[in-house]
Amino acid sequence: MYPKAIENYFAPTDVAEVLTLLNQYGEQAKLLAGGQSLMPLMKLRLAEPQTIIDLNQVAALDDIREEDGRLHIGALARHSEVATHPIILQSYALLADAARNIGDPQIRNRGTIAGSLVHADPSADYPPAVMALDGQLVVAKADGSTRTVLVDDFLAGPLMSDIGEDELVTRIEIPAPVAQSGGAYAKHSQVAGDFAIISVAAQITRDPSGVCQQASIVVGGVMPKPCRAEQAASLLQGKAIDATLLTQAGEAAAEEVETEDDVRASADYRRQLIRVTVPEVVRQASARAEE
């Protein structure tokens, strides 16, 4: 259970250098960020890169800031930084909730947001959270071009994402929520620090009278990737959020999101979790929108 021999190890210090190396080594190279998914895969020989391009010395990739009405999160921002960043706690609370729920303190000290999204585990915490916030990934290519892709499109399926061999995710961008918005995220797992059986992310915007103007609800822990609970969200739109409406939203989400059996839980148990978790998370998101 040891990684296969590594021919080349590079630790570039800027993005241009990373892209040059990607261009040169292409398909036989792997970018190494936190290593919290890649290293286990290498030990299992499910990944056998000849060339490792270590991103950890690229200083410009880890900053978190608001710019032009958007939150910019550098690809290399660690889960622990996202979980505690003042701007994120203030205006993007559901993202901090998700980051805080990932693994354990050591994993959060190393793991990065881009690494998690590229790895695209359907039970991971960031994918549903970034979807609920309508996040986008900014991707740079070896030929110098960049493209922006909505996270819904970026996540292609279990452990599959829309990233080319010559591409680097440089940052995640999230539109700043309007006033009176709030979000929350919760997950159910078998034991502390494990991947989700079911997780729910919700982002709500209310008007001053408490009527829900905009809602987005995403369920994680389902195949092949996190799923938007569109019907549940549209039920909330234009109504004051009360206990009856919350129950209805939970029922609607449990109805529309397809669940499957796997080693962690049955499809039925997952449905029950969706039914009870959606109301909880929406209630918390709505309370935060009021603050």
Partner: peptide
């Protein structure tokens, strides 16, 4: 395998020594 690397607790089995 947890050790403190540059002030942060990390799992030393998930890092390459060259890093």
């Amino acid at each position: 395998c947890t050790v403190v690397l540059n002030g942060k607790a990390v799992k030393a089995c998930l890092l390459l020594a060259v890093q």
